[in-house]
């Protein structure tokens, strides 16, 4: 269970508050979509959930842990083991191959992820023939597939996707969303997607509307 209790986030040197006393509950295995226009605060909520930034006030609970109180080591462990993050800009390491990029989270945690598991993930995202290529040789859709496989490699219970289709054409975006949905169903992870695309929202079970840092409808 993910719980946000009156969470506020204000960035230094910014006049507006990014998140204003947001309270929210997302049950386990949920497929939730944070829907709102650009600058509404959806990405900030995902960053707060991933422990990449700390709330100015309020509490965030993930699996009964208050993540805003975690040390760097604990927050890093949470990001590595419990959360898989998918970025709009893919954020792959350019000098590593597809396979090496996918293996990164397991290498960071020194966990003995089997090569069979990596193989099956690469197969699931349809990149078996591209696994030894560098990201520069891939299309946008393929890069996002790598990012998805990388997010899943440590079998996290929560997948956070920040505008995962923002840099893709419509057809590719559709396949990526279908892939995310099927993987969510297969791996039974909690999937939270931040998007402004209402088409994606249509296939989600749980829609959270956000505007100007506040939840307008849940």
């Amino acid at each position: 269970m993910i719980t946000l209790e009156k969470v506020t986030k204000k960035f230094p040197k910014q006049i507006d508050t990014a998140i204003k006393t947001v309270s929210l509950k997302i049950p386990d295995h949920d497929f939730a979509v944070l829907l709102g226009p650009s600058g509404s605060g959806k990405s900030t909520i995902l960053h707060l959930l991933a422990g990449l930034t700390k709330p100015t006030s309020g509490k965030i609970h993930i699996n009964n842990k208050i993540i805003s109180q975690l040390t760097d080591q604990e927050a890093s462990l949470l990001r590595n083991q419990t959360i898989g993050f998918i970025f709009q800009e893919f954020h792959l390491i350019p000098h590593l191959t597809v396979r090496q990029n996918i293996e990164l989270p397991s290498q960071i945690s020194h966990s003995k992820t089997s090569q069979t598991h990596i193989d099956s993930l690469i197969k699931e995202v349809g990149l078996t023939n591209k696994q030894h290529d560098l990201p520069s040789a891939l299309s946008g859709g393929q890069k996002q597939r790598v990012a998805i496989a990388r997010a899943l490699v440590n079998n996290p219970s929560i997948i956070l996707a920040d505008e995962p289709t923002g840099n893709l054409d419509q057809a590719t975006a559709k396949t990526i969303i279908q892939l995310l949905k099927s993987l969510h169903e297969k791996h039974r992870s909690t999937l939270i997607i931040a998007t402004h695309d209402e088409e994606i929202a249509k296939i989600a079970k749980h829609k959270i509307f956000i505007r100007d840092g506040q939840i307008t409808k849940d």
Partner: peptide, 16 residues
């Protein structure tokens, strides 16, 4: 710094 930030977002500690 971007590669380092990617590693941090994937769970690498400051120490790592």
């Amino acid at each position: 710094q971007k590669s380092i930030a990617i590693l941090r977002s994937l769970g690498a500690t400051k120490k790592l």
